[in-house]
Structures are given as structure tokens and as C-alpha cells.
């Protein structure tokens, strides 16, 4: 009885912890939009283009700096890249084309958000696969414990329990 309660409590705690971790991860994803400070003032013909400029320069990583978007960095190469992004936007290129243009020169390093390709399958798939594996393991363990503790006592065990509780053997019955 006590065993069942403990294991039930444990599995509930675990479930809550997992849920909390999941929520936290989702929240962090939602707010992880990098802070962007445009260094130069640029005029675009439409607010949509201006917004695309902001989001592109926020998601392209400065090759010279350890961890800064080109929109945040004062390094000369970041400035050149911002200028090129603005020029390509004015030429009417798509976001994808502009990213391809930068990757062709500076490598995948400049993408803060790596693309889903054959080469990056492990990168994208491993966290999901590990989470799944962990979930399956926890579920298996919880189920096995529950089953083990819910097992009926054998006659021998019941006699021993009664002896320990100093009860007469006949009063034993279902809990």
C-alpha cells in the first residue's frame, strides 16, 4: 500500500517536472528573439522591407565575433554584411536568396538557425530522439514499479506481515 502511494507520488512528481521543463522550453523559444540594435539608420520603401531587414540582420551571425548578430556588431565585416543585406533587399531578393548569398561566402556559421538538411539531421533530430527515449524509459520504469507494488501478497508474506504486526493470522484479509 505504502509502496504504491510512493511510486504514484514519484511518477506524478516526474510528470509535473517534465511538464514544467516543456513549458519553460517553449517560453524560452518564444522570447529568445535576439535583441537587435540597428547601427545605421536605413530607409526602405516599405515597412515590410524594413522589418525583413531587421529580422535578417538579427538572424545572421557575425563571422568575426563569437556570438553576435550582424545587426548588433560594430565589426567592419558586420557593417559590410548589413550593407549587402540592404542592397540585396532593394534589388528585390528573397530572404532565402540573401541567406544563400551569405552562406556561400561565410559558411553555415552565419546562420543562427541551421537549416534542416541531410547534414543537420543529427543536430535537429537528436534532442527530439533523446526526449522520446527518455519519455519511453520513464514510462517503462513507472509502469514496472506500479505493477510490482500492486501485486497481491502471497500467503507466506501475509503470514509474515501479520506476525510483524502482532495480529492473529485469521484476521488477515483484503486491505
Amino acid at each position: 500500500m505504502a509502496m504504491t502511494a510512493t511510486s504514484r507520488l514519484a511518477s506524478r512528481c516526474l510528470g509535473l517536472t517534465l511538464l514544467a521543463a516543456l513549458l519553460l522550453a517553449l517560453l524560452m523559444g518564444a522570447f529568445a528573439d535576439p535583441a537587435r540594435a540597428a547601427v545605421e539608420v536605413r530607409d526602405f520603401d516599405s515597412p515590410v522591407t524594413a522589418e525583413r531587414y531587421r529580422s535578417l540582420t538579427g538572424a545572421l551571425r557575425c563571422p568575426k565575433c563569437q556570438n553576435q548578430a550582424i545587426g548588433d556588431s560594430n565589426s567592419p565585416v558586420a557593417k559590410d554584411m548589413r550593407e549587402r543585406v540592404a542592397a540585396l533587399l532593394r534589388e528585390g531578393r528573397s530572404d532565402r536568396e540573401i541567406q544563400d548569398f551569405m552562406v556561400a561566402r561565410f559558411g553555415d556559421y552565419v546562420l543562427y538557425n541551421p537549416r534542416l538538411e541531410d547534414r543537420t539531421l543529427l543536430l535537429w533530430g537528436l534532442p527530439a530522439a533523446l526526449t522520446l527515449l527518455g519519455g519511453v524509459l520513464v514510462a517503462l520504469i513507472v509502469r514496472r514499479r506500479r505493477r510490482a507494488s500492486a501485486r497481491e501478497l502471497s500467503a507466506d508474506e501475509r503470514a509474515r506481515l501479520n506476525a510483524l504486526l502482532n495480529r492473529p493470522p485469521d484476521t488477515s484479509g483484503d486491505h
Binding site: 557575425c62 563571422p63 568575426k64 565589426s75 565585416v77 559590410d80 549587402r84 561566402r105 561565410f106 559558411g107
Partner: peptide, 12 residues
């Protein structure tokens, strides 16, 4: 102007 440098992906 650093045009060739840019096309070479030079960052320093």
C-alpha cells in the same frame, strides 16, 4: 572597398 574580400568571405 573590400569587394573581393567580401566574396572570399574574409572577416579579418
Amino acid at each position: 572597398e573590400g569587394e573581393l574580400g567580401f566574396d572570399l568571405g574574409v572577416y579579418g
